[in-house]
Simulated assay, not measured.
Amino acid sequence: MKKVTEIVKLATGIQARPAAQFVQIATRFGSEVLLEYKGREVNAKSIMGIMSLAVPSGEEVTITTSGSDEEEAMDQILQFIGSEE
């Protein structure tokens, strides 16, 4: 299991289109992927879960990956939320 806390640098945060992209990245992997924001943790493969968090830009989130490809999943997710698109 890997657990990393990171600042969201996406200009619009993890809402709407970026939320869908986040879910697409998470679903590429067999590992369990969780996203936590302000004490709420959701399955990162659920668009409704991600949208319900409404994470704005500049906020801190915690990502947890667990499974056979957890390293690669974590790397791809961190790369995505760290970009300033």
Rank of each mutant, 00 (worst) to 15 (best):
A11C: 03
A26S: 15
A44H: 12
M1S: 01
I81N: 02
E41H: 01
L53H: 11
G58K: 11
G58F: 10
D69K: 01
E72I: 08
A44W: 13
G39M: 13
P18F: 03
Q79F: 12
P56H: 07
T27L: 09
Q76V: 02
S46V: 07
A16L: 02
T5I: 06
I7W: 05
S83H: 00
K45R: 08
G82H: 07
V33Y: 12
G58A: 10
Q21M: 09
V42P: 14
K2R: 06
E36F: 11
E72F: 11
A54H: 10
L53P: 15
A54T: 05
A20V: 05
A73I: 12
P56C: 07
K45I: 09
Y37L: 04
Q15G: 00
E59V: 11
D75I: 14
G39A: 05
Q15N: 04
E59F: 15
V4W: 06
Q24C: 00
S66L: 12
Q15I: 10
I7A: 10
L53R: 05
K9W: 01
Q79Y: 14
A26L: 04
Q15V: 08
E36A: 06
S66T: 14
I25Y: 00
L53F: 13
L10S: 03
A20R: 04
F29Q: 14
A20H: 00
A11V: 06
R17Y: 01
I7E: 12
A44M: 05
Q15A: 02
E59K: 14
E70T: 13
R40C: 00
D69V: 13
S52Y: 03
R28N: 14
V33P: 15
Q15E: 00
R40A: 04
A16V: 02
V61Y: 15
M1V: 00
A20T: 04
M51D: 12
I25N: 00
R40D: 02
